[in-house]
């Protein structure tokens, strides 16, 4: 019984979309001109009402937004271009400043080198002069010392000679002896 009911159900379901569709009153094309008239009246009415009450406002809204977005984009583009230009100017200024700083540094370095060289030269000159002075002083001191040695030697020789001769000699004699002794001593040294 159960199996028979199952088969019956399958037959019903298989038949549903078949002959039943062709049964009287089940024609999907059924209708009259009234539906067409109703469709035309309703659609045209809806279209006209919407044209008056909705589409104009919506279109206006879309166009205003579009224009505003376009305006904002144009403005943003102009600002970007301006910013780019300003950046380029600043970069140029910065590059100039860097170049100037570099040239200033080079100039300073050159000046420093020059000053250093001058100071060095000056110092060298002073050193040379000091050395020269020292050499001259040494020479002078040497000559003085030699002269003093000569004078003392002469005096000593005179005294020795006076003692030997046991006689009193005057200043003129002494001077003569000194000169002679110096001349001899000079020869001896040379």
């Amino acid at each position: 019984m159960q199996a028979m009911r199952f088969h019956l159900a399958l037959v019903y379901t298989a038949l549903l979309a078949g002959p039943a569709a062709a049964a009287e009153g089940a024609n999907p094309f059924v209708g009259t001109i009234y539906q067409a008239i109703a469709a035309a009246v309703v659609f045209v009415t809806v279209m006209v009402v919407l044209k008056k009450a909705a589409w104009g406002k919506i279109l206006q809204g879309l166009q205003d937004r579009e224009n505003r977005i376009k305006h904002d984009l144009d403005q943003a583009e102009a600002s970007a271009k301006q910013a780019e230009k300003t950046l380029a100017e600043y970069q140029k200024l910065l590059a100039n400043a860097q170049e100037e700083a570099r040239s200033m540094m080079e100039s300073c370095r050159a000046d420093a080198k020059k000053v250093s060289a001058e100071l060095k030269d000056q110092a060298q000159t002073e050193i040379d002069q000091a050395r020269q002075r020292a050499t001259e002083e040494i020479q002078w001191a040497k000559e003085n010392a030699v002269n003093e040695v000569h004078a003392q030697a002469a005096e000593l020789a005179t005294n020795v000679a006076g003692k030997i001769l046991r006689r009193q000699i005057n200043a003129q004699d002494q001077q003569q002896f000194v000169n002679e002794a110096l001349a001899e001593l000079g020869k001896g040294l040379n």
Binding site: V46, L50, K57, I58, G61, L62, R65
Partner: peptide
């Protein structure tokens, strides 16, 4: 038709600038 008008007319008032 009524549903279309009921949906779009109030929406248009809120969309317009």
């Amino acid at each position: 038709g009524i549903a279309t008008l009921w949906l779009l007319i109030p929406a248009a008032k809120r969309i317009t600038t």
